[in-house]
Amino acid sequence: MFLSVFKTLIGKVISVELKNDMVVVGTISSVDQFLNFKLTNISVDDELYPYLADVSDMFIRGSMVRFISMKKDYVDPVFLQDAARREILDVN
């Protein structure tokens, strides 16, 4: 279900915090069933990670993601709630 949510976010800017405390801001270009992300136009803290300055496209492994923060209006909380309920109904 979260996969379909993130598929609707393709082309949107998100901020990803990784388990190594790195924060990456970028535009989602694709996402798969493990919630691996491909981000374009990324920006990171150049002082902390100078070696990433030349990187514009990156692949982030889903298992290394701690948080994903996004603009509030990218997702509809009521819709998400309903989707979660529907999922439970489908299982039972």
Partner: peptide, 19 residues
């Protein structure tokens, strides 16, 4: 092995321009 990889970034040049 996959579990050690945090991210894979694409480089245009093998040498960094700012270092």
């Amino acid at each position: 092995r996959a579990e050690n990889i945090v991210l894979i970034g694409e480089l245009k040049e093998p040498t960094p321009s700012n270092m």
